[in-house]
């Protein structure tokens, strides 16, 4: 009895509090979290900027050609090389086009910010499409089994057997090029992995005693699936989100690079595509900064996903 009494005094820890406590012990994961937060804020800033120009109905600064400052190198390079500052102070010069400009004299940094915005839009919107499909189909297949399961397994094996790029191309043909095609193309093809994971996990949980106990209380199927089983497998959704986010971003870059993705907006893929033309003439900065931006966000999300996988695993919760 005494141990039971002791337990009462300890403040009860919530599931998320517990996970956060474990995540906090992982320094690398925390740094990744910082990186992700910085990107998120940047993307948000980009969105505000985009809306602002839309509202004012004028051409955004990051799109406006400035033929006086074509192919300006990053400011630090310029200063170090001692280029003409046209009467500006060093600090002011350093703040002018810090990442250089492109062939139309547009600021690379501002375009990177817009690229971040588009990357996050793609990551989020495709998740909003793919995750509910994967979760709902996975839950239904795992819980009901039988014919429902057969159909859903057939559906996702068929999906998985179509090369993703072909599917996206087909969708782009139907809805036209642009962001909508990217959203739908990526969103509708990337639910399979999550669906498979959720299905397996739900099968495991379905036969557990707490589900029988919930049925014995008279709960309906929907409530058991979505209120009792889903919270127990939700860590998979979060981990999958962090892992598929950078995948969606890379796919968008790839599609835009090929010219079937985003049109007329500075997505990272468009920037890479544009910058490759002059790369051999020493215009290295646009390509370099875009690559670093992509590399960092993909790395941070992947490492964070791994750390979350460990931190959120309910089996690792310590007792007491």
């Amino acid at each position: 009895m005494s141990t039971q009494m002791d337990n009462v005094s300890a403040e009860s820890r919530s599931l998320w509090g517990d996970a956060w406590r474990r995540l906090r012990k992982n320094r690398l994961a925390l740094w990744c979290l910082v990186v992700v937060v910085i990107y998120t804020v940047t993307a948000f800033y980009g969105e505000v900027q985009y809306r602002y120009y839309q509202f004012k109905d004028e051409q955004p600064s990051y799109q406006r050609p400035d033929l006086d400052s074509q192919y300006l190198a990053p400011s630090l390079t310029r200063v170090l090389k001692g280029e003409d500052r046209a009467g500006r102070s060093v600090v002011k010069e350093l703040l002018r086009h810090p990442c250089g400009t492109d062939g139309l004299g547009r600021d690379v940094l501002a375009r990177l910010v817009q690229g971040t915005r588009i990357a996050f839009l793609v990551g989020i919107v495709t998740s909003i499409i793919a995750i509910p499909i994967g979760v709902i189909l996975g839950c239904l297949a795992g819980y009901f089994g039988g014919k429902v399961d057969d159909f859903i397994v057939w559906l996702y094996t068929t999906m998985a057997s179509i090369p993703g790029l072909l599917f996206i191309l087909a969708i782009a043909m139907v809805v036209g090029q642009g962001l909508l095609g990217v959203y739908l193309g990526i969103g509708l093809t990337t639910w399979v992995g999550l669906c498979r994971l959720i299905r397996g996990e739900v099968i495991k949980h379905k036969s557990s005693t707490y589900v029988t106990a919930a049925r014995a209380l008279g709960l309906g199927h929907a409530r058991i699936i979505f209120r009792h089983i889903l919270p127990n497998v939700f860590h998979i959704v979060i981990v999958t989100f962090t892992i598929r986010f950078p995948q969606a971003i890379s796919t968008e870059v790839f599609l835009s690079f090929l010219g079937i993705g985003v049109q007329g907006e500075p997505s990272w893929g468009i920037m890479i595509s544009n910058s490759r033309l002059r790369l051999w003439q020493g215009v290295w900065w646009e390509m370099t900064f875009v690559t670093i931006a992509i590399f960092l966000v993909v790395l941070a999300f992947n490492l964070l996903g791994d750390a979350l996988r460990d931190a959120l695993d309910p089996r690792l919760r310590e007792a007491g």
Binding site: L15, T209, Y210, A213, A214, P231, P314, R317
Partner: peptide, 10 residues
């Protein structure tokens, strides 16, 4: 039988 398993852990 198993009270620990009959309650939903989350």
């Amino acid at each position: 039988q198993e009270p620990g398993m009959s309650l939903n852990p989350v």
